[in-house]
Design a protein around this nucleic acid. Structure first.
Lengths: 244, 244
DNA sequence: CGCTTATTTGATACCAGTCAAGTTCCGTGG
DNA sequence: CCACGGAACTTGACTGGTATCAAATAAGCG
């Protein structure tokens, strides 16, 4: 089997743990049901108990939490191959909502099937734990940004991280990437107001660092951005299977 | 075997997954080596690759990230029974540093032993995944606070969460809890300056909500704090084993 | 073409940071 | 026993980064 034939999830997990034919087969049985969701309409609502998780096949999703006062905080974004709602399933309560940024395709994974698969193939559980750890590392980096970086550095760091993640799955490079997000998404991600996001983007543009325009992010001065944001992609990169 | 005889880690995992005698025995073999660390001196340094994780037996630890400009962001706190450095082990790079707040006792868990144990007893891997998910849920809640709550609500939410966590392990109640943190710890946790932390604490005190003084947090108006912080402890609570 | 959504810009207000100085508390050594 | 030094805490005055309010301009879309 060549790499191209694997599902997005298999490709992701293979970066962490070398899986046998048997384990890959178990993995394959996990997700049979394909589902589509349209942009802008929530997939799962906060507080709702989830019986299924998803693996994103195509499109972008963000997960966020709403506050009593109506403001929202976007926690992270999922791109193809990412898990979606794994924590909701494990903790038996959806503590997030999920919004598809564009129309998406996802495969459903039932809780019971997932737990069965873990019992059958321990290495699979380890692989998922690994993937979850990487996701947590991104949330941690996000927290640091919101807590301790000013608006410019926060924006630069976020867009650099997103660029790196997309480059890892083959979409985008050091020159930039296509990006369906609105400035409101950026605001809710970075803990800023939409108005200020606009000003920050203007500043970055006027300083010759990057442009965010017409659904595309273009990096004009990658090194300058890395300096500004103190960006270190170590936590994203996985050079090869950790467990042979 | 009665509950009191379990190790802190076993007690924690039993809240998520019912473990057999065999699994508990595997768990017990995992941590044989006890280690102590003195307050204020880092256990693991950022960037250093870790070969071992720890389970905290007694004391408090915080994990944090340092920025190039010298500021730091505390990501979370560990109290007895919590994992420490699990992500560092899994991702083979320590992306945090750990500071013992007071003198602590911890048991060392070697990476290789942990992975072996997962292979032998899949349910153990599932249990650890569960525990890691709860930890991530706390980081997410922390992110929301820093991104979208003003300083007062942020402080109130943090102290309420800490109180609830401590109550779960039997230390502290709705009246308050003993707290070895300095106002600098609070500042680095909440993304505020130490000066402003002091002002916020004064306000909360003057409004009759809580006092932070002489190593003790006292809640004067629990309901008022819950309102101010929009606090919902659902993500902390685990009513019983999810996997029988 | 008129509606809505996204973006842009200016003016003003306020939350929280910074700087500076002072207090309390405690441990240590003379 | 007291003097000293350091760490944590406290308070005031001022500054500055972002939010908020308001309005104008573009860009899709039925």
């Amino acid at each position: 089997m060549t790499s191209a034939e694997y599902s997005p999830l298999a490709r992701k997990l293979l970066a962490f743990v070398a899986l046998s034919e048997v384990e890959l087969a178990v993995l394959k049985r996990l997700h049979q049901r394909r589902r589509s969701f349209v942009a802008g309409r929530d997939m799962v609502h906060q507080g709702q108990s989830a019986q299924a998780a998803y693996v994103l096949s195509s499109g972008w999703v963000c997960s966020y939490k709403l506050q009593a006062d109506g403001s929202r905080q976007i926690v992270d974004f999922q791109v193809p191959g990412d898990f979606l709602g794994l924590r909701s399933v494990l903790l038996r309560t959806s503590d997030h909502s999920f919004e598809p940024i564009v129309d998406i395709e996802a495969v459903e994974v039932l809780t019971a099937d997932l737990l069965d698969a873990f019992a059958q193939t321990p290495r699979l559980a380890t692989a998922v734990l690994w993937a979850a750890s990487r996701d947590e590392a991104m949330v941690v980096e996000h927290l640091v940004g919101v807590g301790r970086r000013d608006a410019d550095a926060r924006m630069a760091h976020f867009l650099l991280e997103l660029g790196s993640r997309l480059a890892l799955v083959g979409v985008g490079s050091r020159n930039g990437f296509n990006c369906p997000l609105t400035q409101y998404h950026l605001a809710d991600t970075l803990g800023l107001s939409a108005v200020h996001v606009n000003r920050v983007l203007r500043q970055l543009r006027e300083h010759g660092l990057l442009t965010f325009r017409d659904g595309r992010v273009t990096f004009h001065d990658y090194g300058g951005l890395v300096d500004l944001a103190d960006f270190d992609p170590a936590y994203l990169d996985q050079t090869g299977p950790l467990l042979k």
